[in-house]
Design a protein around this nucleic acid. Sequence first.
DNA 1: AATTATCGCAACCGCAGGAAA
DNA 2: TTTTCCTGCGGTTGCGATAAT
Length: 523
Amino acid sequence: MSSMTNESEDNMSKGHQDSPSTEETSGGNMGGGAHLKKGPWTSAEDAILVDYVNKHGEGNWNAVQKHSGLSRCGKSCRLRWANHLRPDLKKGPFSPEEERRIIELHAKMGNKWARMAAELPGRTDNEIKNYWNTRIKRLQRAGLPIYPPEVRMQAQNVSQESQIIGTLPTGDTSSPDILKTDNFEIPDVGFKNLELTRGFLSYSPTLLDMPASSMVKQGVHSSYSYNFMFPTIHSPKRLRESETLFPGLDDSVSSGLPVFHQYVDYACENMSDPFLSFPYDSDINAYDQLPLDVISGSHALLNGNSSSSEPIAGALKLELPSLQYSETRQDSWGTPASPLPSLESVDTLIQSPPTEQTQSECLSPRSNGLLEAVLYESETLKSSKKYLCPKTWDTSVMPGDVVDSPPLNPCKTEWEAKGDPNSPLARSASSVFSERTPISASSSDEPHLVETMLGCEVKPDMVNRVSTQDVQKKKIRYQMEFSRPDALLDLSWFGHGNGCVNDQSIPTDAIAALLGEDISSDY
DNA sequence: AATTATCGCAACCGCAGGAAA
DNA sequence: TTTTCCTGCGGTTGCGATAAT
């Protein structure tokens, strides 16, 4: 929006601390103790800097202050020049092509803004970074995966292949990084995998494993595990919006994912099921389970903040940037433990919007192009300022309906629709941690849960608990998360067709009660 | 119309790597 | 070889603008 771009001219007066008096610079390398101005640049300062650069060329930024009289540190001068004054800068919003390129590059490089900028003439790393972070925020808020489902699917396929091949290395759960960090960084693996292929697949495993061991280990010690979870704080409003279940599922989608098959089918077949919403959430888990997801989603997210920087699988940093995404539930992915359909689900359902992943995945019908998908997404977001009502979809879109929308449409809608003010972002790791701490305590339940989940018996339990109080809900959620086995399990949980769900017979009412809302009404 | 929440951008901060002394 | 300085990078913060309530 508005920007301070030109602000330099007028904004001196604006807030920022532009008071010259302001301190000296930061720590940097500024050498002298002169008072260095901070805050927005004025047009006069810009002129001085431009003049200086024209005469002396770029570089030697610390000399600028000395020779030009500018009360700005070298760092600041360099930034100003690089981000705003360089003659070759391309101003204005990113074009669709640029956006596409950014997504593509991010998939390849992760948060390597400078490198990405090098690939985009006229664009700065800061611009790209801001663009990306903004995008991620939106998605996070919406509870959507950063990368479109399609993308994940593809990635999934790739990873699966690798698994089959036996290339998957064992994840190193105890990776130092992981363990030591509170933050969960989502690696950029997703795309990487896609492009890089198997070599990187290893990456997924790692992530997967994390949950199991890392989470548990860290459980009490750190908030790390929490990061995996979806933040899930969703306003009621969101809930509604998100209720969409599997709007336009398309079989094609499933084709890519063997693992998901059941799930997909289920979704398609049962869209009408009131209970869908529940499963829906669970998807998330399933979703998470996908390596890509983990990767992709995380990537972005974390990237978002997360910095995932290494394109390659190898680098899996787990940092939890401010943008922690729950998407990452990588744990689910490799972990044998978590079947949980959604544990979060419960909670999620209650508090949060439907899950992103699930939806998206399911939604993404025929998409095939990774980039296309991504792009699509980005565009969607753009246009989405007006959130569409998911409701539309929720109710109206049923498996059979799906339809004629462009491949990604469904996703798109959801994508946008899910904006949630209460998103994960808002949650701090610590808070989450505290919230979940109890889990560890209940860890004992994990085994049990896992089994149950698999056996489809979980549901009842869940239901009961759910119907109880929030505390219990949380508890369940925690348990579930920790216990969740893997995606497959989740799928099974849903059961094919009439599967477990029915068997479990989780009362729709109960769910509705849980959600406290519209589920029933929607259906 | 006023207030609050959210968005997007520019700038700052700290760290790391490389070069020079 | 070690120390210091400079540059660049990525993450974070702060602020104005805008949208929503």
